Every structure is written in structure tokens, then in C-alpha cells.
Simulated scan of single mutants.
Amino acid sequence: MTADEALARLKEGNARFIAGRARFPTVQKEVLADLAKGQHPFATLLGCSDSRVPPELVFDASFGELFVVRVAGNVLGPSIAGTLQYAGVYLETPLLIVLGHDGCGAVEAAIGERFHGVKHRSRIEILLREIVPALDGIDPSLPPDELLDACVEANVRATLARILGSPEWEENAAPRGMKAVGAIYALSTGRVRFLE
């Protein structure tokens, strides 16, 4: 598919959505008009950019219900942290979820860098700097699928720990009763496993 074909497909999809003929359930125009007045999502979600993990579909959530931030490897960089803080302070979402998924390509690239000396392009290297430290303590001799699963979970836990250990969380979110949890989505089944 060319870029022009992709753009045409998006335009056609939006036209179907507006006309109420979307392939997926849509919302009434009155609901959209109401949502235009302001947002009140019940959860903030930091997830991976992987096209196979659309949070609104995964959680069967409608417009205005989730405040979603997506970045490869569900990493926590400065602008991501600022976006999450915005959701907590101004939107007052009571729940924050860090959602990883099995087979994550960003985590797989971090494994290659950490354990096999693989080098990546400069901007990807910047992204991987957020993931590689989470892999400390993981046994690189695990079978490849087990290694990737262990690293995906370690990455989610490390991102969650960074959020929970931040001064912003300790000073603002925790006292207001906000909760943060980690979770992993299974690509083959669609099931989300919430971490203890």
C-alpha cells in the first residue's frame, strides 16, 4: 500500500464513522457533541504503539473513557511523564495502567542490544535506553520466547516502578487515592493479564 492509498483508507474510514456506518460500533452524534464539551476519562493508559494492541478495543471502551498515551515499548520519557501528570492533575483519572504486550519488538530490540551487542539507529538507541536497564537480572540463557516474555514483564514493572517512585506520584497522585497497575496483553488470545 502506498502512502496515498493509506491516507485514502483513513479518509474513507472516517467518512464511514461520521455517517454511522463504521465497521466497529460507533457513537451517536449527540454523544460526540457532549464529549466536545470536555473529557472525563476513567483511566489513563500508557501502552505500546504496536498496531495490534488498540487499548479502546482491547478494553471495549468508548470515546472519552480512556486517556491513552502510546509509545514503542511503553517507555517513560520526559514528555510521556508530563502527559501522564496532566491526566492525573487535570483530568483526575483515578487509575493508571502500564500496558505491555507479548512479542514486543521494542523489548526484543533491547534484548538484542543488552545481550547480543546489536546496534540500532540513533533514535531507536534513545528509545532503548529506557528499556535496557529493566533487563538487568534477567537470565539471557532462557529460551528465546521465555526470555522475551520475562523482559516484557520486567519492562512493564520497571516503568511502573519509575512512575510510583516519582515525586509527582508520591506528592500528588497517591494522596488522592490514585492507583497504578501493570498489565500484559496476549496477542494471540486478546487476554490482558494484570500484574500483582
Rank of each mutant, 00 (worst) to 15 (best):
M1F: 08
A3H: 08
A6P: 03
A8L: 09
K11W: 06
K11F: 00
E12M: 02
R16T: 10
G20S: 03
G20P: 03
R21A: 12
T26S: 14
K29F: 04
L32R: 15
D34L: 13
F42Y: 14
F42P: 00
F59W: 05
D60L: 14
D60M: 11
S62M: 08
F63Q: 11
E65Y: 01
E65F: 03
L66F: 10
V68M: 04
V71S: 04
V71R: 11
V71D: 09
V75T: 12
G77Q: 04
P78V: 12
S79C: 00
A81K: 08
A81Y: 00
Y90E: 14
I97V: 15
L99G: 01
H101G: 03
C104G: 07
E108F: 03
A110F: 02
F115E: 02
R121A: 08
R121C: 09
E125T: 13
I126K: 14
L128G: 03
R129C: 11
E130H: 15
G137A: 05
I138L: 01
P144I: 12
E146Q: 15
L148M: 08
C151I: 07
V152C: 14
E153M: 13
A154E: 02
A158T: 06
L164R: 15
S166V: 02
S166E: 11
S166A: 06
E168T: 13
E168P: 06
E171K: 06
N172V: 11
N172L: 15
R176M: 12
G177E: 09
G177S: 05
V181L: 13
V181M: 14
G182P: 02
I184E: 10
I184C: 08
S188E: 13
R191F: 00
F194I: 09
